[in-house]
Design a protein around this nucleic acid. Structure first.
Length: 938
DNA sequence: ATGTAAAACCAG
DNA sequence: ACGCTGGTTTTACATA
């Protein structure tokens, strides 16, 4: 290097690199057992920098000590950074050794961060007409980028320049500090301005130019919250700017001239690399023994194999496995065929019909079957014999997807199989695939002879284990299939299924069909032995297409009204928030229970605080209500704020997001989740739409009947209490239901010995609470809390109740014993509800299980009954000549949409069908309502 | 950055 | 120790 050449200085951010390499690389140790993964990454990077030329001058910059001028300005700066992990600590000094071994200059200076030194060197080298490359991916260094100064990502070896900075901060490098000053940085404790994130910060800087200009313009801003925050936290923003702005006039501990790239001593380096066990680096630098690298790699591979080759847990087998089951378990997995032509697919369809049973599975580009596209389908005709038909794979330049049938062509070939009622089609969660076929253009109602392994399993093992295919396979087949995640990746690495290479997709998808068919072979005989066949064949299986129809239909919502509600809630929340902050004496995040607890109990010193498990103050609504009742203003306002926040985020905003262009929302009903046989609803959950408060009811009003139609609601009256009266055989309760009496009033009359006539509402309310308490497996403590009375008083109520209805105590004891003896209890329709905790040693957990055992037959029996009605209703409506559609189920309620003209008749028919869905020793009663919206109909 | 737990609260 | 069954949102924290 001659001095007349302009210097090019390469500055490696050593401290920043250590942390990144440590987290990015898998753990590894040197021959003497010290963790060295970050050192290894650093060594590789440094070798690469030296090999691929770069500059005339080179230095690695390190932090020195924790104390810098920033902690003088702002003591919290980086204050609660945790100590570096134990495996990283020994690597700091090793990295300094590495720079020495490479004969590279390293620079550090007490009182200054590496970033400040880098900034100062960059400025110095520019001053003498040179250029500079900063090797780092630290966002805090991006402010230095400009003419003659560029950045390089040390891991990816890609340049970081204006587009990357723009992407990160939304502004040019010289404005980065202003943006950072506004948005702050939680990892370094840089405060910024609350409520201003990256988007707002860059928007403000782009509009006003500088931080000071933004602060000056703040008083005239329209958005009140932002204006107030900017004014109040102006100084915090100024301090933040000082914290993030790098010092570029630090005295340089080593003159630039002394940083000139130096020859390294190969022997010193080789010795050091050897001592660290970095043979691959040695080899690459051409100073080592190639065989060493191979030995190293082979050893690592062997270690890996011994882990991944671990034997899977033995499968759960039944003692009466027949030969077929054994064959099912024995056939090898894998070696599946990819089907690309009509002739080949036709062969598989014929083989399926020949076998008269097959498994079918679809692959899609999404989880919502109403909008997902079919990417491929698979077919299994015998254990171990399965194929995958790619339909919409995209492929890449290096790896084209190859010839594929069109969706249309494939459907035309497979339609005769799906509609053939002499060949059984087995699915895992048929409802999903039925709707996928439907969306692809094959009417799901024409698909016949369907079995569903998920429901076969659920009908006999609810509550015992999950019903996902992977879990069922591991359990019953002793084989864990390839997981979806390993095929598509996870997080930011996830790719759409259509981009999975066809070979890999075949391995995965055909295996799913294979596993489904094998599961069917294993589960089918168990249905009979477990007495779950009728439940499966008469309830669960036929319900699946009914629910598919309901999901496909969706329910109409009033978009405009939802929008109004959202806006209304928003403005009212903003007002409340100001009042809350004023009452608290400072700003805080009202949505944070933790911050609220600190305010109420630490700062304001209000009484009645209770800490939860994690030591945080409890601030749930009962705590806040108690404080509000004592006349405190803040908790009352928070309660009101929370109600609106909940309604807005969970309902108005979420529903608006999930409403289709046809102004309808389509939920998804899960059939195999609950431990009792109930359905659940998600995406969105339409089984918990508010109703109990005035504001909540406004949300229910946005579920509407389209023009010319009506909504009809039909719900079972007191169904769980009726089941209790029936299964526990309680004469007094049975008679009350027979006589159509007010059941809670009758209970009150009998338990408290007051006349039915002229009963006061408090007494009735208490009886009602006990009645519900019984269904849930009452405890004196729980009832006391519910009614706000002493536990002793609650105890005496319960005793009086049991004395009057001794059969209930018998029933409860029967259920506890049944659960203890068998591990499950039965609903009146034979559904098994497993109660896993019943044998627990811990009394708390055991009693919890006992309450489940008491509740499950009632909740589950009610679920069975409404499911039976749901299976019959579509036929009954069609037979009656009605065009009405069933839309929703909410545990004891069904919601229908019908032409205005037929609404009354439909309501009558629905009532009849629902009331005759079961024959108990007490009558079932269904109440119906008709309206233009759900609130009105209910 | 991504995933998960805890707290809170909506329904039957 | 918070009588049962669920789902969703948000914050806070751990993971890499």
């Amino acid at each position: 290097m001659t001095h007349s050449d302009a210097p090019h200085l390469v500055l490696v951010d050593g401290s920043g690199f250590i942390f990144r390499a440590f987290h990015a690389l898998p753990p590894m140790t040197s021959p003497d057992g010290v963790p060295v993964n970050a050192v290894y990454g650093f060594t590789n990077m440094l070798a690469r920098m030296l090999r691929e030329h770069v500059g005339t001058h080179l230095a690695v910059i390190f932090d020195a000590g924790r104390h810098t001028f920033r902690s003088d300005i702002y003591p919290q700066y980086k204050a609660h950074r945790p100590e570096p992990p134990e495996d990283l600590r020994p690597q700091f000094s090793l990295i300094r050794d590495a720079t020495r071994a490479f004969n590279v200059a390293s620079v550090e200076l007490a009182g200054w961060e590496a970033d400040d030194l880098i900034a100062s060197y960059a400025r110095a080298v520019r001053k003498v007409g040179g250029t500079c490359t900063i090797v780092s991916s630290d966002k805090d260094l991006m402010q230095l980028i400009g003419p003659g100064v560029c950045m390089l990502d040390p891991m990816k070896q890609t340049p970081i320049s204006l587009p990357e900075v723009e992407k990160k901060f939304g502004v040019l490098p010289e404005k980065v500090v202003d943006v950072q000053a506004l948005m702050g940085d939680p990892t370094d404790n840089v405060p910024g301005v609350p409520g201003i994130g990256p988007k707002t910060a860059s928007a403000l800087i782009n509009e006003f130019g500088t931080l000071e200009a933004v602060l000056a313009a703040a008083p005239d801003m329209k958005k009140s919250k932002r204006r107030d925050m900017l004014i109040e936290h102006a100084d915090a923003a100024r301090i933040s700017r000082q914290l993030v702005e790098l010092a570029c006039d630090v005295p340089l501990p080593v003159p630039i001239a002394d940083l000139a790239v130096r020859e390294m001593d190969k022997l010193t380096l080789a010795d050091w690399l050897e001592s660290m066990g970095f043979r691959s680096v040695l080899t690459r630098l051409g100073v080592g023994h190639p065989s060493g690298a191979h030995a190293h790699r082979a050893a690592r591979a062997a270690a890996h194999a011994s882990i991944s080759g671990a034997v899977a847990e033995a499968p759960t087998t039944t003692p009466d496995q027949d030969d077929l089951t054994k064959a099912t378990l024995a056939a090898p997995y894998g070696a599946y065929e990819t089907v690309r032509t009509a002739q080949d697919l036709q062969k598989w369809v014929s083989a399926a019909q020949e076998a008269s049973v097959c498994a079918v599975d679809t692959e899609t580009d999404g989880l919502d079957p109403l909008s997902a596209n079919m990417v491929g389908l698979s077919l299994a005709t015998a254990p171990g014999k399965a194929c995958y038909v790619p339909l919409r794979h995209e492929g890449t330049l290096e790896e084209p997807a190859g010839e594929q049938l069109s969706v249309q062509a494939a459907l035309d070939i497979i339609r005769p199989l799906l509609t053939d009622d002499t060949t059984l089609k087995v699915f895992q969660n048929a409802k999903f695939d039925l709707l996928v076929f439907d969306h692809a253009g094959l009417d799901y109602t024409t698909i016949t002879a369907v079995d569903d392994t998920m429901l076969m399993s659920y009908a006999q093992s609810a509550g015992l284990h999950g019903q996902g295919m992977d879990e069922l396979s591991t359990r019953h087949l002793g084989h864990t299939p390839i997981s979806y995640d390993t095929v598509t990746g996870t997080g930011r690495n996830r790719i759409p299924f259509a981009q999975v290479p066809v070979k890999r997709a075949t391995d995965y998808a055909a295996e799913d069909a294979d596993v489904t068919l094998r599961l069917w072979h294993v589960l089918r005989p168990t249905l009979r032995t477990n007495k779950a066949l009728a439940l499966y064949e008469q309830i669960e299986r036929p319900l699946s297409p009914v629910l598919a129809g309901m999901e496909k239909a969706g329910i109409a919502v009033d978009r405009a009204e939802l929008g109004h509600l959202s806006k209304d809630f928003e403005t009212r929340m903003a007002v409340m928030e100001k009042e809350i902050h004023a009452a608290a004496g400072r700003d805080f995040n009202v949505a944070s229970p933790r911050q609220l607890g600190e305010i109420l109990f630490d700062e304001m010193g209000l009484p009645g605080g209770k800490r939860g498990k994690a030591g945080a103050w409890g601030t749930d609504s009962s705590v806040l209500q108690d404080l509000a009742d004592q006349g405190h203003e803040l908790p009352e306002k928070v309660l009101a704020w929370r109600q609106l926040a909940k309604l807005k985020s969970t309902y108005t905003d979420a529903l608006l997001r999930q409403t289709t262009t046809e102004d309808r929302v389509h939920t998804s009903f899960q059939m195999a989740i609950t431990t009792t046989g109930r359905l659940s609803s998600n995406d969105p959950n339409l089984q918990n739409i508010p109703i109990r408060t005035e504001e909540g009811s406004r949300i229910r009003q946005t579920f509407i009947a389209p023009k010319g139609k009506k909504l009809i609601s039909a719900d079972y009256s007191q169904i769980e209490l009726r089941l209790l009266a029936a299964v526990a055989n309680i004469p007094a309760l049975r008679e009350a239901f027979e006589l159509k009496q007010d059941i809670h009033a009758r209970t009150a009359s009998e338990v408290f010995g007051v006349p039915l006539e002229g009963m006061d509402s408090l007494t009735r309310r208490r009886a009602k609470a006990i009645n519900f308490g019984i269904i849930y497996g009452i405890s004196a403590f729980g009832l006391a809390r519910q009614l706000g009375i002493p536990a002793g008083e609650a105890r005496s109520y319960i005793d009086a109740y049991f004395a009057r209805y001794p059969e209930i105590r018998d029933y409860m004891e029967r259920m506890r014993e049944e659960a203890r003896a068998q591990g499950y209890v039965l609903t009146p329709f034979g559904r098994r509800c497993y109660v896993p905790g019943i044998q627990e040693k811990s009394a708390v957990r055991r009693q919890y299980a006992e309450r489940q055992a008491i509740n499950a037959p009632l909740q589950g029996g009610a679920a069975d009954i409404i499911k039976r009605a749901m299976v019959r209703l579509p036929h009954a409506l069609a037979e009656g000549g009605f065009s009405a559609r069933m839309l929703l189920q909410v545990h004891d309620e069904l919601l229908f949409e019908a032409d205005e003209a037929e609404a009354e008749a439909v309501a009558q028919l629905v009532k009849t069908v629902m009331e005759s869905a079961a024959d108990l020793s007490v009558p079932l009663v269904v109440e119906t309502g008709i309206g233009n919206n759900w609130a009105e109909a209910h």
